[in-house]
């Protein structure tokens, strides 16, 4: 089954999101920042969907996404950002990197589950 990678530096958010997805029967991996996320994706071609926070230490979410597309040349993995704010520049960077969606925190699993299942299929 396709895997979902949850990237967030906050263990609370990570546990909540990953916990919910696991409970919903999905295969979930986690990463603690952009750098970690990047190496996880590099090492696991089974990852089909990334749910990532934006503001993180070491490497922020948007930079990670740009590197996934650029350095790793992975143009197929679906990406959804978890965010608390929205700015035109953020959206522009997201568009350029082919981000599928933005989920404004707090995360409400029921609202996104169906779409996530589709994107991870």
């Amino acid at each position: 089954m396709a895997k979902i990678l949850v990237v967030d530096d906050s263990s609370t958010v990570r546990d909540e999101v990953a916990g919910f997805l696991k409970k919903s029967g999905l295969d979930v991996a986690t990463a603690v920042d952009g750098k970690d996320g990047l190496s996880k994706i590099k090492g696991d071609p089974g990852i089909k969907l990334v749910l990532s926070d934006i503001n993180m230490p070491n490497m922020d979410g948007l930079t990670m996404v740009e590197k996934i597309r650029g350095e790793l040349g992975n143009s197929t993995v679906n990406i959804i950002m978890l965010t608390t704010e929205s700015s035109p520049s953020m959206k522009e960077r997201g568009k350029a990197s082919g981000i599928k969606g933005w989920i404004v925190k707090p995360f409400k699993g029921d609202a996104v589950l169906e779409s996530i299942k589709k994107l991870a299929a």
Partner: peptide
């Protein structure tokens, strides 16, 4: 911001 100009599913998300 997450909805406008983005795929319709973002509306469902948020």
């Amino acid at each position: 911001g997450a909805c406008i100009g983005e795929d319709a599913m973002n509306f469902e998300f948020n």
